[in-house]
Simulated scan of single mutants.
Amino acid sequence: MGTRIEHDILIDEQQTGQRLDQALAALLPDYSRSRIQQWIREGAVRLEGTAPRPRDKVAAGQQVTIRAELEEEQRVSAEPIPLRIQYEDRHLLVIDKPAGLVVHPGAGNREGTLQNALLHHDPQLAELPRSGIVHRLDKDTSGLMVVARSLAAHTALVAQLQARSVRREYLALVNGCPVAGGTVEAPIGRHPRDRKRMAVVERGRPATTHYRVEERLAAHTLLRCFLETGRTHQIRVHMAHAGYPLVGDPVYGGRLRLPPRATEAQRQALRAFQRQALHAARLALDHPESGERLSWEAPLPEDMAALLACLRS
């Protein structure tokens, strides 16, 4: 059983003319707009005694009642897994996730995930959706993630992600040598034949990735990528679509590419690098309580730094 939520709300002048979901999100800031929309669709919200739609307009003096269940998350066990904590206060945690660590438990990964580690660090996170995790990184992508430690912070961070005000910068080592930076704007959805992969597809969700050249190498380039959207595997799919697949990417990387006149050490280093060379290097957002703009940076992990050093030589 979840927690029973009961609210009786009177729409005021400030909300007149707004959509119902927009008005309720303003009046109930502890809940995200998507959660409120779900309650409306489930019939847990009544506007003047009738079942409304999220887009229905409201007027001053109208009565809204909410009788909903705040569902409990599927129980995830706490595990003493070390965390690299970059920042911590009563609202936020910023984690530098190592490559190889799965974010959420799932089929085949019920234990040993970031969520298990977070619950050991702070058992109170069990009260939040997905233990406060508001975005994710692929298992073999390293770098910065923010975690909410309160329901208000969770709602604020989700809103910032939806408004695209969270700045996420990645370092990606790609095959090939783009002449200059650029933008890939192409919709992403499930691959039409391989449902485990994503692809650029006509009816996919809009996705935009900006990139600039950080460092040029003989046959590879270190790019700094900026996300406007947060689609699954977005940078990996977009850079492969642009003709510059990530080094080591087992899904979208294609065949191994070696530099001309590569040394034996370089050949071995490239063959041994068995994950996508992608690192979430910088994160910036507005603090959910103070509104202060905060930012963090995480250095390249050892394996990616070593590969770069080898390719430079």
Score class of each variant (00 low, 15 high):
Ala298Asn: 04
Arg205Leu: 09
Glu202Asn: 12
Ala44Asp: 14
Ala163Met: 13
Val251Thr: 15
Glu185Leu: 05
Asp89Cys: 11
Gln18Trp: 09
Ala107Met: 10
Glu289Pro: 00
Trp296Ala: 02
Ala60Leu: 06
Asn175Ser: 13
Gly17Asn: 11
Leu137Gly: 00
Ala240Trp: 00
Arg271His: 10
Met239Gln: 08
Leu93Phe: 06
Ala26Tyr: 08
Glu169Gln: 15
Leu10Phe: 06
Val94Arg: 01
Val247Ser: 07
Glu73Leu: 02
Glu88Val: 09
Leu308Lys: 03
Ile40Glu: 02
Gly112Asp: 08
Val146Trp: 02
His241Phe: 13
Asn109Phe: 01
His191Glu: 11
Arg75Asp: 12
Leu157Trp: 04
Ser295Gln: 14
Ala25Ile: 03
Gly291Val: 05
Val58Cys: 04
Glu214Lys: 11
Val158Thr: 15
Val158Glu: 13
Arg46Lys: 15
Gly43His: 12
Glu69Ile: 10
Gln276Phe: 01
Thr113Val: 13
Ala26Asp: 13
Leu70Gln: 15
Asp138Glu: 14
Val45Trp: 01
Ala117Cys: 08
Lys196Ile: 04
Thr232Ser: 12
Ser165Gln: 15
Asp140Val: 07
Ala269Thr: 07
Thr221Asp: 02
Leu307Met: 09
Val201Cys: 10
Leu27Ser: 11
Pro105Ala: 13
Leu256Gly: 10
Met198Tyr: 00
Gln86Leu: 08
Phe273Met: 12
Asp138Phe: 05
Glu185Gln: 15
His154Val: 03
Thr232Trp: 01
Gln74Ala: 12
Pro98Trp: 11
His120Trp: 11
Arg164Thr: 08
Asp12Arg: 15
Asp303Ala: 11
Ala156Ile: 10
Gly291Met: 07
Ala159Ile: 03
Arg84Ala: 07
Ala180Asn: 08
Arg255Pro: 05
Ile36Lys: 03
Met1Asp: 10
Arg195Ala: 08
Val134Ile: 15
Tyr170Phe: 08
Asp30Ala: 15
Ala60Met: 07
Ala240Ile: 04
Gln124Cys: 09
Ile133Asp: 01
Leu28Gly: 03
Ala180Leu: 00
Arg167Trp: 07
Ala60Ile: 04
Arg231Phe: 04
Gln162Asp: 13
Gly181Leu: 08
Arg271Trp: 07
Gly254Cys: 14
Pro299Val: 07
Ile81Glu: 01
Leu223His: 06
Val184Pro: 00
Pro192Glu: 06
Glu292Phe: 04
Asp249Val: 10
Glu88His: 13
Ala51Leu: 14
Gln160Val: 07
Gln274Trp: 02
Pro299Tyr: 06
Ala23Thr: 05
Gly291Ile: 06
Met145Glu: 03
Arg190Gln: 07
Arg255Phe: 09
Pro250Ile: 05
Arg90Gln: 11
Leu270Met: 08
His279Cys: 00
Pro260Asp: 14
Thr16Ala: 13
Gln276Asp: 06
Ala172Tyr: 06
Arg33Met: 11
Glu214Thr: 09
Leu222Tyr: 04
Ala281Gly: 11
Ala306Phe: 01
Val179Tyr: 03
Val58Gly: 00
Gln266Trp: 10
Glu69Phe: 04
Pro299His: 10
His7Ser: 14
Ile81Arg: 04
Asn116Val: 05
Glu72Phe: 02
